[in-house]
Computed example of a mutant assay.
Amino acid sequence: MIRKVLALINKSDVVVEVVDSREPDLTRSRKIEDISRRKDKKLLIVINKGDLIPLDVLQKWKEYIERKDEIPTVYISATGHLGTKVLRDKIKELLGGKQEGIVVLVGYPKTGKSSIINALKGRHSATTSKFPMSYGYTKAVQLFRVDSRLYIWDTPGIIPPDGNELERIIRGINVDKLEDPVRAAKLLFDRIQQFDPNVIKNVYKLDYSDYYDFLNKLALKRGWIYKTTKEPNIDEAAKVLIRDYHDGKIIYYTYPPDVKTDDKSSSV
């Protein structure tokens, strides 16, 4: 699948990389960025799901990426159609004086590439889905005409998500293929707790002492019980935690590495 993405980069004028606003750094593909630069392609990073985090944190990420990596960056909320004009204008700016241009959207599963196409066109036209690799997920490359000057390739997510286990989870791994969802979800749980210790309690309306107590109580609350042992199905609870994160139900945010403590406290 990655070969198809590389072939489309060759055919395109601008590479638009879509990342998740909650974890911009962990949802970037340095490999794709490096390839795009080596091929002398214009590169734009789009921080999507901007409605999930504070505006000043989005601005800090934009400034950080542009300063550190010298990659033009915009932030939007594709589902809320916020920032769409800024994105469209930035793409056309990168195209320069060309009468027509082709853009390729790249990104990990669940960063919202198809939703961005829908937002740019102003009506639903690209395939979208709720979970990675489920029915309706973008499996084939599709070309969409946005307007008289702009064409966009929609590509499948970079499958399988790479990196360490936490990074693969955040980058949209298929939870049904996890060998040990309980262990995997603990990495995400710990990551979320690191930045906001109350968010999971607020989302699930549960009070718990630790991760495993959370899984047990969530399984019991949802009625997920093994028929034979009558024990809580904590595997299913772990999968739901990961799915809910990708569905935008669990909201926390990270800061760029160079943001000082005082700057962080002013954003909360």
Rank of each mutant, 00 (worst) to 15 (best):
E167G: 03
P156Y: 09
G112L: 12
G157R: 09
R168V: 02
Y64P: 12
R168T: 02
I102F: 05
E93Q: 14
G157P: 03
T138C: 12
I152V: 15
I117A: 00
W153V: 06
M133A: 10
P160M: 08
I91K: 12
I76G: 06
K92V: 04
Y135M: 01
K110T: 03
G157W: 06
V146C: 05
L105A: 03
G112Y: 06
H124Y: 06
G80Q: 14
Y137D: 03
P160I: 09
L87V: 08
F144C: 02
K90F: 04
K113D: 00
R88T: 06
L87E: 11
R67W: 12
E66R: 04
N118S: 10
D89P: 01
T127W: 00
E165R: 15
E93T: 10
P72S: 09
D147K: 08
K98G: 06
S77G: 13
I152L: 11
G112A: 06
I102R: 15
E70V: 04
P72N: 08
W61I: 07
L95G: 14
G96A: 11
T155E: 14
S115W: 11
P132V: 02
T155D: 13
E70A: 10
K90V: 00
L94F: 01
D89I: 02
I91V: 14
G97I: 08
Y64Q: 04
P156R: 08
I169C: 01
H124N: 13
P156A: 12
N118V: 06
H81T: 07
D147V: 07
W61L: 05
T128F: 02
K62D: 02
V146K: 10
Y75C: 03
D69S: 07
V74Q: 12
A78S: 14
S77F: 09
E93N: 09
G101F: 07
I91D: 05
G163K: 04
D154W: 10
T73H: 06
N118W: 02
I102V: 15
L105N: 07
K110N: 15
K92Q: 04
H124R: 13
K98M: 14
W61H: 12
K68S: 08
P160Q: 08
T73W: 04
N118E: 07
L105E: 05
F131C: 00
I158Q: 11
D89G: 05
I91C: 02
G80Y: 11
G163H: 05
R168F: 01
R67Y: 12
T127N: 03
G96S: 12
Q99E: 15
T155S: 15
D162E: 14
K130Y: 00
S125R: 14
K85D: 14
D154N: 04
G83P: 08
R67T: 08
P160C: 10
G107T: 13
L120R: 10
A126C: 09
V146E: 10
G122P: 13
G157M: 07
L82F: 10
D162S: 14
R145F: 00
G96E: 13
E66M: 11
V104S: 01
Y151R: 12
L94Q: 04
L150Q: 08
R67G: 01
V104G: 05
K98N: 10
R67I: 01
L87Y: 05
K68L: 07
Y75V: 04
G122C: 04
V86D: 15
K85N: 05
I116Q: 00
A140L: 12
G112V: 07
E100H: 09
I65W: 09
K90T: 14
L120C: 14
G83M: 08
Y135F: 03
K130F: 00
